[in-house]
Simulated assay, not measured.
Amino acid sequence: MKSTYRILLILLFFIGYMGFSQTPEQQKMIDRALKMRDSIMECMNLEEMLQQANTKEKRLEQKQKTNTKTSSITKAAKNEDKYWKNTLASENNTFKNWQNGAADLVYNYRYDSSKDVVEYVKVGVINSDGSIVLNATSKVPVLKSLNNFKDSNTFFDIHDSDLYQFSNENSGFKLNSYILVYQNEKQIGILTLGNSVKVTRNLLTPGDLYFGDEGYLLSWVYVDEACAIKANENWKGDLSNTGSPLLVETNVTYDLSFKPGWNLVKTEVIGTYEFPNAPEEDRSRYKKHEHTIVDAIPKEATYFFRSTVE
């Protein structure tokens, strides 16, 4: 996460420095930097939502430490807590221990800073008994061009953006790897869908994007016209978060052909590099990311609700 902030600061400095007079080539560089800044900010805001879910429990833990003798906790135990704190997993499309009452599932497409309002369309509900009904049919009114994806891909797994190939690149496009959960017009959590509590969190968290826990995450995509994204990159380099080099070889493929309207993208983490003696931030790295279209939600997929209410 520290590296993400460093990148953001560099981008902000670069944008400010270049803000006087520019050649056409310099303007292109500024435009790309702005897009990258927006993408990083979106990731950071999402991570902040996830971290809010842990704030209350951390405060309670701190109070307990002042009253009780601290016991040793293994790294594995800490690691598991990170993924399951304030998190519910569904069984047969139902949260068995749901105690939040009825809630709306919404797909956010824009943040209006002038009104401090998240704009969204409703795509489903969580009923008071915890049953989940997801039925995305509404049109998403505000979209960005598909070709913007090469500079705003929140998975950050293609290192050379020139490798992206777009079909109908000016079509409107929006991808979210999560659904917001609202109650009385206020957000109470986020909903993700996949087959791993770790993967469905890692791929939303900038500092954990390159972790090697295997499994998949589903993303919801809306496009206004038929279009496609193709990419295939074999890459070798350092994916360390802590400064100690972690040299790995990765393969990332995008094979996405979208139909007009709603689509489901499956992002699968395949293969793991293990670094058992490395710090938590460098404990593992992925070997392959595979992005494909799926026609329906897989039967074994699980919904994960992560509370953002303190």
Rank of each mutant, 00 (worst) to 15 (best):
99 Q>P: 07
302 T>K: 11
246 L>C: 04
77 A>D: 14
43 C>L: 12
287 K>S: 08
291 H>K: 10
240 S>D: 04
73 I>F: 10
48 E>P: 04
222 Y>M: 06
1 M>L: 08
228 A>H: 09
10 I>K: 15
230 K>Q: 13
25 E>G: 04
40 I>C: 04
26 Q>Y: 09
205 T>P: 07
68 T>A: 11
193 L>K: 03
255 D>K: 15
153 N>L: 08
163 L>T: 04
94 T>M: 13
206 P>L: 08
104 D>F: 01
217 L>W: 05
176 N>H: 06
305 F>Q: 08
289 H>R: 11
259 K>Y: 09
58 K>G: 01
183 Q>F: 13
79 N>G: 08
36 M>R: 06
41 M>G: 01
87 T>N: 04
17 Y>F: 11
175 L>I: 01
93 N>L: 08
221 V>E: 12
69 K>F: 01
66 T>P: 00
234 N>M: 15
22 Q>K: 09
29 M>T: 06
162 D>W: 12
249 E>S: 15
249 E>G: 12
81 D>N: 13
41 M>K: 13
262 W>P: 01
260 P>F: 11
309 V>K: 07
125 V>K: 14
107 Y>L: 14
112 D>S: 07
50 L>H: 03
295 D>C: 01
11 L>W: 11
200 T>Y: 05
17 Y>V: 15
310 E>A: 08
92 N>D: 10
116 D>Y: 06
299 K>M: 14
108 N>F: 01
146 L>S: 05
12 L>P: 05
286 Y>F: 13
45 N>W: 14
204 L>K: 12
